[in-house]
């Protein structure tokens, strides 16, 4: 099948096609490479080479477990879950604690502003620096849900499937993360 035709297939259909012919798996890799690379950067402070090694391991794991993919899930949730676990494993191998180095871009600020009242009177540049400082200090359990909610723009159900936590727990974590964030912001600004 030609690449152009395969591009029209859904992720879930491509999983079945990859099982029939491994070269079809390249379409899934191309589709998710950029998204996952950005995600790994967001939830880790790994250097570029390590991020690419993590990604390669992720795609190999995905290929090995194609038969385990549950079609009730979204493929994106499943591949994000594998990526998240791979990052945690990498931290364990390095005997380090997960640390985020937040990239506070305009999209993120807009998403955050739509959900949390972070004040409009401050200069955007100062605000961005404050936000970045607070986010870098936050507990990992909170920052990982904030990444998925405000940067990856995932729904509660998707975050639940990615982190393998009940939706109620995800909602609680996001709520607490927002409260912690606001408290720190009020202290700093």
């Amino acid at each position: 099948m030609r690449k152009k035709e395969l591009d029209n297939y859904s992720d879930e259909e491509l999983v079945s096609l990859s099982l029939e012919n491994q070269s079809n798996f390249a379409i899934l890799i191309d589709r998710y490479e950029g998204l996952l690379k950005r995600y790994v950067f967001r939830i880790s402070n790994f250097p570029q080479e390590d991020v690419e090694d993590v990604l390669q391991d992720v795609f190999i794991k995905v290929y090995q477990n194609l038969n385990a993919f549950n079609h009730k899930l979204k493929f994106s949730s499943w591949i994000y879950r594998i990526t998240h676990n791979q990052v945690i494993s990498q931290y364990r191998r390095n005997k380090a604690r997960p640390q985020l180095d937040w990239q506070v871009d305009d999209d993120f600020m807009n998403n955050l502003k739509s959900d949390i009242d972070i004040g409009k009177s401050l200069d955007d540049k100062i605000l961005k620096n404050e936000v970045k400082e607070i986010l870098n200090k936050m507990d990992y359990k909170y920052s990982q849900v904030l990444v998925l909610k405000f940067l990856e723009e995932k729904s509660y159900a998707e975050i639940s499937d990615i982190l393998k936590k009940p939706q109620g727990t995800v909602a609680t974590l996001i709520n607490r993360a927002k409260k912690q964030f606001k408290k720190e912001l009020n202290k700093n600004v």
Binding site: L19, Q22, I29, E33, Q56, F59, I60, Q64, N67
Partner: peptide, 24 residues
């Protein structure tokens, strides 16, 4: 590893190491 050829790298590794999906 460059961004462009990650899919090729993964497919090469799959072939070289004869990696197969876990059976159903």
């Amino acid at each position: 590893m460059s961004e462009k050829n990650i899919s090729q790298k993964v497919l090469t590794q799959i072939k070289k190491e004869k990696i197969e999906p876990t059976t159903k």
